[in-house]
Design a protein around this nucleic acid. Structure first.
Lengths: 189, 189
DNA sequence: ATCATTTGCCTAAAGCATATAGGCAAATTA
DNA sequence: TAATTTGCCTATATGCTTTAGGCAAATGAT
């Protein structure tokens, strides 16, 4: 049988697609090999092991998210920037639930730093620069913002808000609105 | 070899302990059997399968959490109740990380309703009754509150805030303070 | 163009988790 | 004490992970 041209990159991208289709948990070396019509052992020349594969998918998702966030933030400030950033995460999670789950994969500190981890927190800080917060408060706000976004997105994704009025979109708008008010109030304090 | 008195209940409780020790992901029928010094197949008389075991651990965690929340809320109102409830989740997650993860296990709607799911949302609503919110706003607030608590706790648990100043406890207080202010403002609007 | 080297995918095999079937002895009930 | 139920067992099948070693295709050197 000829070679079909596996590469780490193709595996990772296919893994990301698989994650969106069947869930990040179900992304397995076996399933991936099956998808490429190849024997499992063949993957091990391209990824170290199963954990490595998942970590790479996580890094891919984080990069994609950071790219989207960077575009969304360009030319925006204040509440506009806040909602743009928050929407990036929420939209990404709805379009790519498996990848979003992947982005929550617990990476080692080195992996996270080498990857897009830093870009994400810098963008959060950039958004918050639009609200005049003092040093420690800025960190509190970064943490709050991260918590609200991740918390909302993951509860919504898990189906926590489904089949109940009002529409989750309304709650989302209300939440971002509240967050904006809150941050402005804190700044003015 | 004689019988050692396995029951579904003992398995689930041991599974919860195992989760706290090695992580909810690593809770496996094999590991549990090993812990009881019993063959794996023996567990299958007490739990339907691996997923069933995990779901039962999830339900246990949700009940424990609901019990703690109920005690914590007794005799409290307003901000006092808000922080008490939030602290219950955060403290539980720190004391029992595996169980907390378990409580996020995706249950079927029936399982969730039969279990403590309803108690939790009712307690959230009870806390929010202390802030005079109109109908739909109350739901928005329930969702916001759930998002902030779950988001903060899970980011903190994942190590997102570790090794960076200021102390996560400060951000937590600041967050709850902000949330209280926010809800009072919304109510007064 | 040919030979040497590297590389990619293969087969084989071991380890461990899930799950089912069927058996025997201990516990329970009559 | 006999009959029945129940609890844990062995045996077995299936699936995912991972390593070792092999052969042929691709690549590079002369």
């Amino acid at each position: 049988m000829g070679r079909i041209g596996l590469t780490t990159d193709r595996l990772v991208r296919a893994g990301a697609e698989l994650a969106d289709e069947v869930g990040f948990e179900q992304v397995t070396a076996s399933a991936l090999a099956r998808r490429f019509g190849v024997k499992v052992a063949s993957l091990y020349s391209h990824v170290r092991n199963s954990r490595d594969l998942k970590a790479r998918i996580a890094l891919l998702a984080l990069e994609e998210l950071a790219d989207r966030a960077a575009s969304a933030l360009a030319g925006r400030a204040g509440k506009d920037a806040l909602t743009a950033l928050a929407d990036v995460y929420r939209d990404y999670a709805r379009e790519h639930p498996g990848r979003y789950d992947a982005s929550r994969f617990r990476l080692t500190p080195e992996e996270a730093v080498a990857g897009a981890g830093r870009r994400h927190s810098e963008m959060m800080r950039a958004v918050l620069r639009g609200y005049d917060l003092t040093g420690p408060e800025q960190t509190h706000a970064v943490r709050l913002l991260g918590s609200v976004i991740h918390g909302y997105v993951s509860l919504e994704l898990a189906g926590g808000f489904s089949h109940s009025a009002p529409d989750p979109q309304e709650s989302w708008s209300w939440t971002l609105d509240s967050l904006d008010t809150l941050l402005r109030t804190r700044a003015a304090r």
